[in-house]
Amino acid sequence: MLAAFFFQPYTAPYLGLVLNWAIIVSSVALLVAIASLVVIHIRFIVKGRKGFLYSIVLVVAFLVTLGLGWYSGLDDPAYLAGIRAILVPLENALMALVALVLMSAAVKIFRVRGWSILTVSFGLSALVFLFLNLGFLRFEGNPGMSQVVSMIQRLPIVGARGLLIGVALGALLMALRVLFGQEVERE
């Protein structure tokens, strides 16, 4: 597979076939996992496990979504609008909640992590980029300062590039160890 990926000009037809099988396996695995999830929650309801109300909610939401979709068809505009009307506000609300959580975390960072090179540069950078994003630091009449600001805006790329290269090397090494069966010690 590895060779096929690298030498795609020669292996494209076979690669497509194997990737199709992988898509099928992962889709069926997801269906199996979903079936297992629903069965587990039905079991929780039957047993009356603590918090089984949540299980009822999950099973009902699952069956209603599945049943309506089956009946009306996946491409039915009314069905899709219904799904959107439920899921989009929920996900937006969660994302909004994340903003509040991030804000409260940022306020506490020095108390939690103490003072170090990493926390100080994190804090200063967050402040500077907050001001820059809000448009407070603009030097339209001063080309020299504008150049400095644009250079500051590119500074995070340095760290991001270093982090990405390190993470990619780590992932590559781990993946190769998995392929060679060396990822974890045998007990």
Binding site: A96, V98, I117, V120, L124, A126, F129, A160
Partner: peptide, 25 residues
């Protein structure tokens, strides 16, 4: 670590801005 901190700070502000946009929406 200075560069890592700068990058994390900038990412954090980006994430916060995304969350804020969702809050406003």
């Amino acid at each position: 670590q200075i560069f890592i901190g700068i990058t994390f700070g900038a990412i954090f502000v980006g994430l916060f801005s995304t969350g804020l946009v969702a809050l406003i929406a």
